[in-house]
Design a protein around this nucleic acid. Structure first.
Length: 727
RNA sequence: GCGCCCUUAGCUCAGUGGUAGAGCACUGCAUUCACAUUGCAGGUGUCGCAGGUUCAAAUCCUGCAGGGCGCACCA
């Protein structure tokens, strides 16, 4: 090959589109089409991005890391499946579309009706999805588009209904009146994990309550408080007996109060006495449950006071609070006021201040023993009784699932320790409808029953319910498909550490309960990508770097390398233009290495073995190459992709180009060494292209094609073998 | 309150028992010869502080200081 055929510089933009097309047309993204069918399967389920948005740096990060794992496995001869998909992201998507409709048409979802809103949301979701999919391609993602899944498509809906039915049958899903997190803004319940705590400065009031002084930051909930709770060992209140009744003057006149003694009281806090509002506080609810106390609703679903508030009925909390305090002050019941800082619960998606409410909802019971009929998990026998909590703890504690970096296992266990039953029903319209039908006293779960008079539950399921099934719903479950047999459990779950609880833990829960297995062997967690000002990169910030712009400016390979270079798993990283630029230079360096080698080596044989060295420089570079191959392979097996990337970078630029390539110039002039030098140049280039391919797939494939031709798909670099170290 | 992490060259960060590393930035020199998206040569550092273990500690242990995060929470 003559040098004139290779331009002086690598032009990423002109190479990338054509190369992706060749990869896609080769069919090799689909494991069924790979040249070798005898390898072990290797599977990654892509974390499905929300259909709400466009690609941001976080997506670029996971697409890069997963593609590295996938391309490496494919070159190792494994039957490699990377299954892509998108998530309907129920609350997030509906909220976005509702907001748009409200802004443009001044209409609410109730003006449109359920059917019309869903039509609009689905329309938006589809359009958004196609954008995201094209952006994934731009990142070079070698995923199997023929198996593309969507959490709300027909196959996944079947899986959801079947999962609900089975869990219900096992007694793990129940319906009950329990205290839940109510988002007055989104008009729906949310799970504990969808809460974000925010610091709030407020006033802490001390009120006279008969002979007691009680403290509160929420006077507006106090109307119904007819129980005063103290610690059984508190000497200050020893004179009052549990169950003793007293008449006390309160907000709207005298009421009968009952003394309750309970260990949950912190004697050190406030006065050591408090009144409870079981309808609007989890802790109070638990106390009321223990003693069989009455519960009464004070605040409605829109955050307004109910009839019990008397003259304050219908007022919003913010309006009522100062007025209530004023009235108590006038009655001489305010003892003192303090500045107070506490954390208030807000809804992650809407920002609404969460109001606990007792509601009839669907839950997954995490402490309920059930019989796991079929278990493939070591240490758990088929037919064994176990709780979901125990199951989730077991698989990680006993190493059946490995978390990388392992320090996140602590977070995982801590989360499980604090885990309460998971509220899975939502009062929004977009999502999987709760698959339950009612008729009279009858209830049918899972499939729509035949016959008249059945009505379906109006609620939808938490989006993480369907996401939790992802590793096997994507493979056709509940059918016993060949895919399910071959590719499950998956090998690696690669995602951001932010969603360890939201998603990773839920997959472990669902897979354990429904398949008696683990969803994956390894969880690899990456950190957040921040910009140079340390702000978290997200789609909501228009000024932050758009991956597509960066690709246009520097090339996909440069962006990929910059994302993972010098970045350790689980640690947040900063993506700077300087770093990407440096990696663009590296791509160009590789290009020119190839340009030099091709100019000096008449033919390249990719099947040639290790060439014989003739000089010290020959021996040194071959030894270094061998060392690099061995160390990189170990790094990749151990998920140290940042180390592997640095090694190959170091070898290509500073060992091969700076040292050997310079030495080769005089060696090529000497007839005694010219032959072996050519062989070594060719050999090193061949190995470097292979080693770099998972990291920089485009430039390596482009060069490979220039060397070996582009006529035969079987000659694509993506399906060539990963180099083996000689020792 | 419980738990986790970070503190290394000007900046951003790797490294986690055996004489300190990368990228970018910086200084000087070179340059028709693969590449200026370059090369060579250079400062680049009490590896947060104080103890301890060890023949040997940036690396392990203890304490302290500063920064960040997760979970929970007291009305």
């Amino acid at each position: 090959m003559a040098i004139t055929e290779l331009p002086k510089n690598y032009d990423a933009a002109s190479a990338e589109k054509d190369i992706y097309r060749r990869w896609e047309e080769s069919g090799y993204f689909n494991p069924d089409n790979l040249p070798r069918q005898d390898g072990d399967p290797f599977t990654i389920m892509m974390p499905p991005p929300n259909v709400t948005g466009v690609l941001h740096a976080g997506h670029a990060m996971f697409l890069t890391i997963q593609d590295i794992f996938i391309r490496h496995a494919r070159m190792q001869g494994k039957r490699t499946l990377w299954l892509p998909g998108t998530d309907h992201a129920a609350i997030a998507t509906q909220a976005k579309v509702e907001k748009e409709i409200s802004k443009k048409e001044k209409k609410s979802r109730h003006d449109l009706g359920r059917e019309e809103l869903l039509r609009r949301v689905n329309e938006f979701a589809l359009a958004s999805q196609s954008t995201i999919l094209s952006q994934m391609r731009a990142m070079g993602s070698s995923c199997d588009w023929s198996r593309l899944a969507y959490t709300l498509d027909e196959t996944r809906s079947r899986a959801v209904n079947e999962a609900f039915k089975r869990l219900h049958g096992l007694g793990l899903i129940y319906r009950g009146h329990r205290i839940v997190n109510w988002d007055p803004k989104g008009q729906t319940t949310i799970s504990d994990d969808e809460i974000v705590y925010q610091e709030e400065k407020t006033t802490f009031y001390y009120f006279r309550y008969g002979p007691f002084v009680i403290g509160t930051a929420r006077p507006e909930t106090k109307f119904g408080d007819k129980y005063v709770v103290v610690h059984p060992d508190d000497p200050r209140y020893a004179q009052y007996a549990h169950g003793q009744k007293l008449t006390v003057e309160w907000i709207n006149g005298p009421i009968e109060a009952t003394v309750i003694k309970d260990n949950a009281i912190d004697m050190e806090f406030g006065t050591g006495a408090m009144t409870i509002t079981p309808w609007h506080s989890t802790a109070d609810f638990d106390i009321a449950e223990r003693h069989g106390l009455d519960k009464e609703q004070i605040i409605d679903e829109r955050g307004k006071l109910l009839d019990i508030a008397g003259e304050f009925t219908g007022m919003k909390i913010a309006e009522a609070r100062p007025k209530i305090v004023e009235k108590l002050r006038a009655k001489g019941l305010v003892v003192k006021e303090e500045e107070y800082v506490h954390q208030i619960a807000t809804a992650e998606r809407t920002g609404g201040i969460v109001e606990p409410q007792i509601k009839l909802q669907w839950f997954i019971a995490v402490n309920q023993p059930f019989t796991l009929e079929q278990s493939a998990i070591p240490g758990i026998a088929s037919g064994q009784e176990i709780t979901l909590k125990q199951l989730m703890q077991h698989v990680v504690r006993d190493g059946h699932i490995r978390i990388v970096p392992d320090r996140f296992a602590n977070n995982y266990f801590h989360w499980i320790d604090n885990l309460r039953d998971w509220c899975i029903s939502r009062q929004i319209w977009f999502g999987h409808r709760v698959p339950v039908w009612y008729r009279g006293d009858e209830l049918a779960a899972g499939d729509e029953p035949s016959g008249d008079g059945w009505t379906q539950d109006p609620d939808t399921l938490d989006t993480w319910f369907s996401s939790g099934l992802w590793t096997f719903s994507t493979l056709g479950w509940p059918d016993e498909t060949p895919d399910l047999r071959t590719f499950h459990p998956t090998d690696v779950m690669e995602t951001a550490y932010e969603i360890l609880f939201f998603w990773v833990a839920r997959m472990i829960l669902m897979t354990g309960a429904l398949l008696g297995d683990v969803p994956f062997r390894t969880v690899y967690l990456h950190g957040l990508v921040r910009d140079e000002k340390r702000a978290k990169l997200s789609k909501s910030k228009s000024d932050s770097a758009d991956p597509l712009d960066l690709i246009g400016q520097y090339g996909t390979d440069a962006l990929r390398m910059a994302l993972i270079f010098n970045t350790s798993p689980g640690t947040d990283s900063i993506l700077s233009n300087e770093k990407i630029k440096g990696m663009k230079h590296f791509a160009n360096k590789l290009w020119n290495i190839a340009r030099y080698v091709l100019a000096n080596v008449p033919s390249m044989d990719s099947g040639a073995g290790t060439p014989d060295p003739a000089t010290d420089a020959d021996r040194a570079i071959l030894a270094k190459l061998d060392e690099t191959v061995g160390a990189m392979s170990e790094d990749l097996e151990a998920f140290r992709i940042h180390e592997a990337a640095q090694r190959v970078y170091q070898f290509a630029w500073h060992e091969f180009a700076d040292i050997y390539l310079e030495a080769s110039k005089s060696q090529l002039d000497d007839i005694a060494t010219a032959g072996s030098t050519r062989n070594i140049l060719a050999y090193c280039l061949d190995r470097m292209l292979r080693l770099l391919h998972p990291f920089m797939p485009f430039v390596t494939e482009e060069l490979w094609g220039r060397i070996h031709g582009t006529d035969d798909p079987a000659k694509l670099l993506m399906v060539q073998s990963w180099p083996a170290a000689s020792r």
